[in-house]
Write a protein that binds this DNA or RNA. Sequence first.
DNA 1: ATATTATATTGACAAATATCAATTTATTTT
DNA 2: AAAATAAATTGATATTTGTCAATATAATAT
Lengths: 231, 231
Amino acid sequence: MAKFSKDSTCYACNLKHNLFRFLTDDELKYINKSRYEVHYKKGENIFKQGDAFTHIACLTYGMAKVYLEGENDKNVILRLLRPVELIGSPGFQVDSRHHFSVVTIQDSRACFIDANVFEQVLKSNSPFNLEFIKYINSATIRLFNKLTGLTGKHMHGRIADALLYLSDQVYKKSSFTTNLSRQDIADMTALTKESCIRILKEFKDEGIIEYGSNSFNLLDKEKLEMISRVS
Amino acid sequence: MAKFSKDSTCYACNLKHNLFRFLTDDELKYINKSRYEVHYKKGENIFKQGDAFTHIACLTYGMAKVYLEGENDKNVILRLLRPVELIGSPGFQVDSRHHFSVVTIQDSRACFIDANVFEQVLKSNSPFNLEFIKYINSATIRLFNKLTGLTGKHMHGRIADALLYLSDQVYKKSSFTTNLSRQDIADMTALTKESCIRILKEFKDEGIIEYGSNSFNLLDKEKLEMISRVS
DNA sequence: ATATTATATTGACAAATATCAATTTATTTT
DNA sequence: AAAATAAATTGATATTTGTCAATATAATAT
């Protein structure tokens, strides 16, 4: 289970996210008053789809997966979060519910800001507000790409995209160690884990990548990009 | 080609969209100054993906499809617009580009509001701003459902969803005439038109629906909802 | 270290879906 | 109305992807 830090105050995070650079000292103080931090073990829920949305979170340490829980147990991983990354919810101003789940894939920490406090600051600070809209809209653009990728590409292209995403956006190395399971990679690509494993094997046999049980090395990124393009 | 109305002023639309109820008279006047209307024939682009985003649009008459243009000619129709419906762009505050295309499926009219003017009003009116965030977030929630639907359901479920969407959200009747082609319905469901046609035929053979070349009658909605659920 | 459990892998096969070509039907133009 | 064009339909077939069961490997608990 998650445990609160001693006094529920966030030491590690100093509202470092880009978004907060638009706040005045007073606003930062106001937000800080309600702010607290939670420590998570690997595999714990930061947010749970369907649950009440009361706080904006900010991942300050570790890593987490953001995913949609479909009806028939099928999850779709939208993206991975690294520090320092904000986690809002489209339920904000709509139904105050979470519409995705966020689960840590390693020991992590997150900072929480009361959604009402956040709303107050949004109201009083229009540059901050526009920046928040920018944040939301960027997420929408990513979602568009996810949608066209998952509906328009075949298995090879989707696995290539997932590997490139991990390498370029998440781990920022062509060779990386990860806590993601094969099922997780399957959930990133909307495939079954068996299909996922088969494509990975193909890529390995063709010398495009090499991997162990929890590490990947992208030997030929250009090839992966080509595969992503032709599907 | 689209043609401007005589003096480029919008008569039909009086900023009727829900969103605008939060504006003061002065703000409405300010927006109205830059506002103009365009008439479209069926099949014309209101917005084109990739093009510069300079204006928010509001569909005041007719109907339009909003779709993502994928790489290999594969389009995904996100939704259909009816009057009076706002059409923003996730490029707002991000890259000032359109990330989807909007094309009329019948003769239509749209009202345009300068994005800079819109931004000014957003800045000065925080209830309006929060309402706009609500608007964006609602769109995100719809997108989540689209994503889980298209990746998690089989052909039958997806066609059922499209038919129910048309009936419940767009035409608001269980029997309706539409300008959507079979290709359009295929684009709503991320299927090929041939597969789409086959499922429609199956549904017809089972007495769940009946249809002509441009009309549908949903005889058994409960069955469709059941099909949507089990796949 | 050993037993236990979870995860990953493989193969054979079935199901879902797309492709391609041919034909029919509808729509538009002359 | 006839001709021309576009859209819808159908069938045969290939491709893609999932399912299920068996085995192997890794991770965790005793």
